[in-house]
C-alpha cells in the first residue's frame, strides 16, 4: 500500500464530492432516496470501525471484565450521550482507560 497514492485518490474523491453539485448546479438534483440513505452513513461506518476495536482482543471476541478497552469505551458512550461534547468524551475515555488498566494489573 502506498500512502501517497491513497491520499491522492482520497483527496481527489473528497474534492470531487465537495465540487460536484456546486459545479453541476441546475443540471442535477439529489434524489430524495439518496438523501435519506446518506443520513445513515455516519452511524453505520463509525460503528463498524468502533465495534471491533472494543469487542475484539487479538482477533477474539472478549466481553470479560479484563477487556479494559470495552469498559472504557462503554463509559465513553455514556459520557458522549450526556455531554454531547467530543473533547470531554475523549478525555473521559482516556482517563477511564488508564484507571482501569491500573486495576486490571
Amino acid at each position: 500500500m502506498n500512502i501517497w497514492l491513497v491520499m491522492l485518490f482520497g483527496g481527489l474523491i473528497t474534492f470531487g464530492m465537495r465540487f460536484s453539485l456546486i459545479y453541476l448546479f441546475g443540471k442535477f438534483h439529489i434524489p430524495e432516496a439518496m438523501r435519506k440513505t446518506l443520513h445513515y452513513v455516519p452511524p453505520a461506518v463509525l460503528s463498524a470501525i468502533v465495534f471491533p476495536d472494543l469487542f475484539l482482543r487479538a482477533g477474539k471476541f472478549d466481553i470479560s471484565m479484563d477487556n479494559t478497552r470495552l469498559l472504557a469505551g462503554l463509559f465513553a458512550v455514556a459520557v458522549a450521550w450526556i455531554s454531547r461534547n467530543t473533547l470531554i468524551t475523549i478525555l473521559a475515555g482516556m482517563v477511564a482507560f488508564f484507571v482501569l488498566q491500573v486495576f486490571v494489573r
Binding site: P42, P43, L46, V50, A72, G73, T86, T89, I90, G93
Partner: peptide, 24 residues
C-alpha cells in the same frame, strides 16, 4: 485508544432516532 474514542464521540450524538440506532 483515542481513535475509537473519537469515533464514539462522533457517532453517539447522531443516534437520535430508532433507524439510526439500528444502523449503528
Amino acid at each position: 485508544f483515542a481513535l475509537p474514542l473519537t469515533f464514539i464521540a462522533m457517532v453517539v450524538p447522531v443516534l437520535k432516532n430508532r433507524p439510526s440506532i439500528v444502523a449503528a
